[in-house]
Structures are given as structure tokens and as C-alpha cells.
Write a protein that binds this DNA or RNA. Structure first.
Lengths: 222, 222
DNA sequence: CTACAATGTTGCCATTGGCTACATTGAGTG
DNA sequence: CACTCAATGTAGCCAATGGCAACATTGTAG
């Protein structure tokens, strides 16, 4: 056996790297700090020196994930070309990432709205929407899209793509390919933005939600 | 002390009910079969008689959740009124459910794409999209929406609303209200479907994904 | 050289999920 | 009615986990 030096040297990075592997192949449930330590040939309490508890490790993992994902998204948005292909590129970057790292994405989102998530984590998760907003505003100024509240449109686009990413990550799409879904979504969104809102239902307060809103306890028997 | 009878009588239901409570207030991580048993004044192995393991309990919980949610969605789709308000109603039913039961929804989706999810669970999760498809096809026949592949449109709508529900459930929207998001999303989707697809980018294969796909590990299983 | 903080190790504990053997109950069945 | 037996609940055990505290090793700053 290669006699390990007393100090691993890069334990923190090694833990994160290995955790990423384990998570993607065994899910978050399959992640054990002790097993992680064993994998790295280190004592079972060593991880505790770098991460207060399991959640701290997951937080760090999520932060890494957001950094990586945002890099791809901004990269796609800054690519050369017309705006619509760039829009599709952003969507692809997001969805592809979700498909490549489904569990990591789930961790990213679950830790993001954890009660005590770091500010950095909380804000870095919103870079994507900023990128989308910039591109939409640019296309509006160029007359390519109908004028409108770019903030609101970006929110909707982000939300829709988030849904696509989620479903793609969960291989919810039995027959349909991921790229088909991505293109179908961007097509519809872009068409809506080109057309603008002829009858903005959002303006009216409505309020007649008509949602029963009773709790789950008394299940409505179909 | 009320001397408990040896047989609880409704342990299974009681377990599910209590589990729902615990989950919503402490998350899935805070759910322990043994604590559940203690809460119900029953031995620690009693739950094992009704649920093979923890996952089986979560599966049952998810099934209940889908049933309840689908009941609301179909209820909204069958409400009287014009099609667009009904479309919004479906969206509201989904998003409101997500906000009311965020953790349950997460459990629903995580168990749904679990490797060994029951067929019933797998298919019941797709009722929502069927409802949306029916409504869209109806509106197309009535000339209210531009003609097009209703299956594809329903998929996109479902996906987008799914994203809205997810973000709403995770209280991702700092300032924006849930209803604002729902209406903004349905507005854009409806506008896109009214306008139709002038330039269906989905037809062309494109393929120039331009996704670097490096970063974060070397995983490129495509 | 020495004090000290960072890093890693060993030992311990309560809790958990899951398993097996056993107890109680009630519903059939002769 | 007596007997069987499956369903349900109990008690005890086990390995694994996360977290904590005490101790060991190392590199470094004063």
C-alpha cells in the first residue's frame, strides 16, 4: 500500500469530486459521509473538518453546480449569431445541463431554498434569468420582438425552461427527445413574444381564483 | 391513559396522515419511520407491516398526492366558462397545489421517476397533460387557437406550468406573487398558441448545439 | 525553538432502517 | 363450539449513519 501522508492535502476538493460522482449514480440518499471518507482512504471524521455537516457539503456542491451551469448559460448567450438562435442556445445550455446532471440540479434547487442558504447561493441561482432578460430586451430594441415588460417575459421564459429542464432531468419524456422538447418550448415562447399580448389577462385583478383551497385532508373523491 | 387496543385498526391511514404532516413541516429528511411509530403510540416495527420500507410509504404518499392534485386539475378543466379562463384555471389549480404542498410535490416527482415506480404512479402523473391537450384541441377546433400539433403544445404548456409550480413551491419568487407568475405564464403561452408558429424552428435539425460540455467532470454520455 | 492553528484519527453515542422471532387478535371453517 | 391461520402489532437484534469529543500529526508564524 502506498503509505498515505498524514495530511491528504486536497481533501476538500476530493470530497466534492467524489460526492458528485456518488450523487449522480446513487442519488442523494446514497451519499454517506462515512462511505465518502472510506472511498478516499481517510478516517470517518475527516470530512467533518471541511464541512460542518452533510448539508454543508451539499451546499458547496450546489454552489459549484450553479457556477458551472451559469458559465454555460452566459457562454451560450454571448455566442455570435442572431438573437433567436442564441435564445435557443441558452435554453439548450440549461436543459442539457439538467439532463447531464439531474441529481446535482435537484440538489442545487433544494439547497437553494433551504431556510439557511447562503446569500451567495441564493443570488447565484438567479443569474440565468438575468441573462434571458438582457437578450429579450435586446431583441425588443431591435424590433425583433413586440415591446413589453422584459422582466416579466424573462421570468416566464426562465420558468418554462426550468420546467423543461426538470422534466428532462427526470426522464419524464417517454418518447419525446430532449431537444424536441427544448425546441418546442422555445418556439412557443418566441412566438408569444413576437406576437405580444393581444389581450393581457394579467392586467385585470380577477381575484376569482375559484380554487377550493381546502386542505389535502379531505380528498376529493373523483 | 386510554389503553390502546392491541390492533390500531387504521394504522396505515394514520401513518400516511401523520407522514404528510411531518413532511410538510420538517421535509423528507425529517421523516423517520420510528418517530412516526412513536407519534402514533405504536411499536417501531409496526409501520413495516404496512409499508415494506420507507420508499414504499413515500410511494403511497405520492400516489395520494397525484390523486388529489389531478382531481383539482380536472375539476378546473370541467368548470363552466370560456376556454381561456379554464386554461388559466388549470394552471392555477396546479400552481396552487404546488404552493400548498411543496414538499409533497417534490416527493411526488422524485418517486415518480424512481427506477422501480409502480405503473399506476407512473401514469397518474401524466393526467395533467392529457387534460391540457383536450382543452387545447377543443379551442383549436373552435378556431380560438391557431391549428397545430395539440400534443406538442400541451407538452410545452405542461412543462411551463410545471416550472412555474416548481419555482412557486420553492418560494423562488422573492417579490412576484404566485398569481402574477401564473397569469404571466398563461398569457404568454396563450398568445403563442393564438399566433401559431410563423417560423417553426423545430423542423430543422440544426444540431449546432455549440455546447462546450466540459467543466464539471467529464460526463458526456450522449 | 516553541506555540499554535489546521488537519486528520480514534473512540463513542443516539438514532435510524431493516430483519427475525414471537404475541395478540379476529375471521373463517370443520 | 373448538381449531386453524392469516393479519396485525411487539420486542429484540444488527449494521450503518451522523455528529461529537479527545487525541495525534503536521506545517508555520513568532
Amino acid at each position: 500500500m502506498t503509505d498515505q501522508p498524514y495530511h491528504h492535502g486536497k481533501l476538500r476538493e476530493a470530497l466534492l469530486a467524489r460526492a458528485r460522482e456518488v450523487i449522480e449514480e446513487a442519488g442523494v440518499e446514497g451519499l454517506s459521509l462515512r462511505q465518502l471518507a472510506r472511498d478516499l482512504g481517510v478516517s470517518h471524521a475527516a470530512p467533518g473538518k471541511h464541512f460542518r455537516d452533510k448539508q454543508a457539503l451539499l451546499d458547496a456542491l450546489a454552489l459549484d453546480g450553479f457556477r458551472s451551469m451559469n458559465a454555460r448559460i452566459t457562454g451560450a448567450s454571448e455566442a455570435a449569431g442572431d438573437r433567436r438562435p442564441r435564445f435557443v442556445g441558452i435554453a439548450r445550455a440549461y436543459v442539457d445541463f439538467a439532463v447531464a446532471h439531474p441529481v446535482l440540479l435537484a440538489v442545487m434547487h433544494s439547497t437553494k431554498h433551504h431556510p439557511d442558504a447562503s446569500d451567495e447561493l441564493r443570488s447565484i441561482g438567479e443569474d440565468g434569468i438575468r441573462v434571458a432578460r438582457a437578450l429579450i430586451a435586446e431583441a425588443q430594441d431591435a424590433g425583433e420582438l413586440a415591446p413589453g415588460d422584459s422582466e416579466r417575459l424573462a421570468l416566464v421564459c426562465f420558468v418554462s425552461l426550468h420546467g423543461a429542464a426538470m422534466l428532462a432531468a427526470g426522464n419524464l419524456l417517454d418518447g419525446t427527445s430532449v431537444d424536441y422538447l427544448t425546441l418546442a418550448t422555445t418556439d412557443l415562447l418566441w412566438a408569444g413574444m413576437v406576437a405580444g399580448m393581444p389581450a393581457p389577462q394579467v392586467a385585470s385583478g380577477i381575484g376569482a381564483g375559484a380554487a377550493p383551497r381546502d386542505e389535502l385532508g379531505v380528498m376529493n373523491p373523483c
